[in-house]
């Protein structure tokens, strides 16, 4: 059985990977809240981003067709691309993060 099939069909594969994805958001969020701490937490912010990216790729890989067909997922990807053009922890980037979270939650609906 391939790793992909194993993760897709196991009881805990999907929940654990998506929980790490959510913890990545929390991790990143904590590192941008206090301006005084932001520079020192840069390395930790990158770890959070790496977690988000890795688990996000795995989640997509488990259900590529479902995600590609979702309007919300496409909106999320566009917002992510825009996000890479903004300054980290700036108001614009935080607003985009908000939009990305809403688009993500909306995947289950549209």
């Amino acid at each position: 059985m391939s790793l992909q099939t194993f993760l897709r069909e196991s009881t805990w594969g999907y929940p654990i990977i998506s929980a790490i994805h959510v913890l990545g958001i929390a991790w990143f969020g904590g590192t941008v809240l206090i301006p005084q701490f932001v520079p020192e937490l840069r390395k930790w912010r990158y770890i959070g981003l790496a977690l988000l990216l890795m688990t996000g790729l795995i989640l997509f890989w488990l259900h590529p067709v479902q995600y590609s067909n979702s309007l919300s997922f496409r909106v999320k990807m566009v917002l992510l691309i825009v996000l890479t053009r903004t300054k980290p922890a700036s108001p614009a980037s935080l607003a985009l993060w908000g939009g990305i979270i809403v688009a993500s939650r909306a995947i289950a609906f549209w």
Binding site: L33, W44, I101, V102, R105, A106
Partner: peptide, 27 residues
């Protein structure tokens, strides 16, 4: 309703604030 994912998103931002800060204090 469309409100459901919106409230879920606010819930997620709450996680980022609550768990994100608690874990940093722990670290």
């Amino acid at each position: 309703s469309w409100l459901f994912p919106v409230i879920q998103s606010v819930h997620l931002v709450g996680i980022a604030l609550l768990v994100g800060t608690v874990v940093l204090v722990d670290l």
